[in-house]
Design a protein around this nucleic acid. Structure first.
Length: 578
RNA sequence: GCCCACGUAGCUCAGUGGAUAGAGCAUUCCCCUCCUAAGGGAAGGGUCGCAGGUUCGAUUCCUGCCGUGGGCGCCA
């Protein structure tokens, strides 16, 4: 049986032992990094340079003392002093070889960590207003959030995925109004369609459905609809609000039907879209329920109780400047209606009340100015704002033949997530979205995402997986038999390189989880695929020598596992054939 | 004006308090009688925006400046 020992932890314990032996009383933090150059060993340690100052001895001399005190190890080949005082550590091949069968025996457990120790963590993402189809900007938030949630779960957190539904605000009223106006057109009641209402064709589609279902039940005279409204030239937003008020008055209880119909249609559409994209949620949390259940009243009352509210100009203000915000914010308007901010305070307090030890919000980067006031409000209400983490996602800009496609929901001219998925496929879309750090602008090259060539990193990685599947298929044996492979036969440089790469996987998961950086996993998979392709070209797997063959098959099967596992975390498929 | 990011090869971007800063594309050259050439190998290409500071050591941390993008509603 080939027992595997994690090299890094092993070396750290060796070094700690050596330091305490050679330099009693000195307890520096042992750090190991992976040198860029192979001539600098497999790991390098800077402890001698750290301790040299307090010891008042030359770093190289300290390094020599540490090396002399290193205990014997069956993994460590040699340790050298190098440069200003590095200790370069070279491992025996055996340190890596056993990884091949180890990963096979671990199965899906390889790469699963216990960093989170079961901590309950909520990831809230997408949370787009259900006022129209999701666009490519939402797509990035969806891909990032889903991948991050998967990575966190892999790292041992108990993850809860949530979508906050803005079903109570003015934007929803505008959508309901837009739908109704289109419906009135079908009833031959023509109100000039406001330029700042929702223009998209999906609004007409909803109007058609309502007309088909209910005839002219919701018909009202155009003159009544516009009665008393300011003209669009002088006050476009005021006109919109007046039309909404008229709609509510004229329709009475039926307004709720139009509103609810539009909400259900758009929310359902978004849910289907996301599900097809491999993005699923545990909870769809309704903003409306915050109003209805009195949670907002309670949240505001809490702020008042702590003495952080005041009234001015008929509105109720939160003194957020006392918590680092640049100006105070309104929580209840002079018309008595709570602001979105008030609902958000209640929502975040509710998140903590539900027992999440950490809450991650994924917002568009244009909301960054919103962070101080939300954190401030949480602190003001007596909650621990440090448990809220906000990850910002920059917009994605699509490029086709160097041409930009900008987007604006109201004008109805934008590229939808569905369009994007249809054009490049779910795999390419998911992968390209997380190929950049989330808080950086993303230039999404549609032509590249579609190309079936080695330029396309998605295909490159999937091809590595398919190649392995093809070899295993040609072999036709039983995978479990490879557990006893003689891994000591893996001596080629490409084999060792691949083994080392496989050994990095748990560390990559850890970094991706800790830094909220699933892109590191995407880059790792590219590197892993490159190592596999390099080995593929250099070595024949199905060779006469059965012991060698089985060792190599164990190695590539282990690679296949990691590729598949890593791709799954990113929501990308791992095909056996391409 | 204030706040937040970013500035690394011709292009798109990784990366790190350490030793000679990487990948893909693009350019030039080479490798299939063999498990998928959607692959591999080699070469060229850099004052890590500029200037100070902290440090044994800075592309990485801090400050200023320049440049780019975004944010600064009783919208959501």
């Amino acid at each position: 049986m080939n027992r595997y020992t994690e090299p890094r932890a092993h070396l750290i314990s060796l070094l700690q032992h050596a330091v305490s032996l050679a330099l009693p009383g000195n307890t520096g933090v042992i750090e190991l990094d992976r040198p860029k150059q192979s001539s600098h060993g497999d790991f390098a340690c800077n402890i001698a340079m750290q301790l040299a100052k307090t010891l008042k001895r030359p770093p190289r001399e300290v390094a020599q003392a540490v090396i002399a005190a290193l205990p014997a190890s069956n993994l460590l080949d040699k340790a050298e002093i190098a440069g200003p005082g590095f200790i370069n550590l070279f491992l025996k091949p055996a340190a890596w070889q056993s990884l091949a069968t180890h990963i096979l025996s671990q199965g899906d457990a390889w790469g699963r960590l216990d960093l989170g120790r079961g901590e309950r963590i909520q990831v809230e993402f997408v949370s787009a207003n259900p006022t129209g189809p999701l666009h490519v900007g939402h797509g990035r938030g969806a891909a990032f959030g889903a991948s991050l949630a998967n990575v966190l779960a892999q790292a041992g957190y108990q993850v809860h995925r949530e979508y906050y539904v803005n079903d109570a605000g003015r934007q929803m009223d505008i959508l309901a109004l837009s739908t109704w106006l289109r419906y009135l057109e079908l009833c031959n009641e023509f109100v000039p369609f406001p330029g700042n209402a929702y223009q998209g064709g999906y609004v007409r589609t909803m109007a058609d459905s309502i007309a088909a279902l209910h005839g002219d039940r919701y018909k009202r005279a155009a003159a009544e609809v516009v009665a008393g409204a300011p003209d669009a030239e002088s006050d476009a937003e005021g006109r919109l609000d007046a039309l909404i008020a008229n709609a509510k008055r004229l329709l009475g209880a039926d307004y709720a039907y139009i509103h609810g119909f539009a909400l259900e249609e758009q929310l359902g559409d978004g849910r289907n879209d996301l599900t097809e994209f491999g993005v699923v949620f545990d909870t769809w949390f309704s903003e409306k329920t915050l109003h209805e259940s009195g949670l907002i009243d309670r949240a505001v009352e809490s702020l008042r109780h702590h003495g952080h509210l005041y009234e001015q100009d008929g509105a109720l203000w939160f003194r957020s400047t006392a918590f680092g915000d640049e100006k105070d914010r309104v929580v209840r308007r002079d018309n008595g209606i709570y602001t979105y901010f008030a609902a958000d305070i209640a929502y975040h307090l509710n998140k903590f009340e539900r027992g999440f030890e950490r809450v991650i919000d994924i917002w568009g980067a244009d909301h960054h100015g919103y962070i101080p006031r939300v954190k401030g409000a949480l602190s003001a209400a007596g909650a621990d704002a440090d448990r809220l983490h906000v990850a910002l996602v920059q917009f994605a800009v699509l490029y086709r033949n160097g041409q930009k496609a900008s987007m604006s929901t109201r004008s109805g001219e934008y590229v939808t997530l569905r369009d994007l998925r249809a054009e490049v496929g779910n795999d390419a879309a998911r992968f390209f979205y997380v190929l950049r750090k989330s808080d950086q602008h993303l230039d999404f090259d549609l032509d590249l995402a579609k190309s079936q060539s080695n330029d396309n990193p998605v295909y490159y990685i999937q091809y590595a997986h398919a190649r392995i599947a093809s070899v295993m298929n040609a072999w036709g044996g039983v995978e479990a038999d490879l557990l006893d492979a003689e891994v000591a036969r893996l001596e080629q440089p490409q084999e060792i390189a691949l083994l080392k790469r496989l050994g990095e996987y748990p560390g990559v998961i850890a970094i991706a989880a800790q830094d909220y950086a699933p892109h590191t996993l995407a880059y790792y998979l590219k590197d892993l695929a490159a190592d596999l392709h390099g080995l593929y070209v250099a070595c024949q797997f199905l060779v006469e020598d059965e012991a060698l063959r089985d060792a190599r098959l164990a190695l590539i099967t282990a690679t296949r596992r990691v590729l598949k596992n890593g791709l799954a975390l990113l929501g990308v498929s791992a095909p056996d054939k391409m």
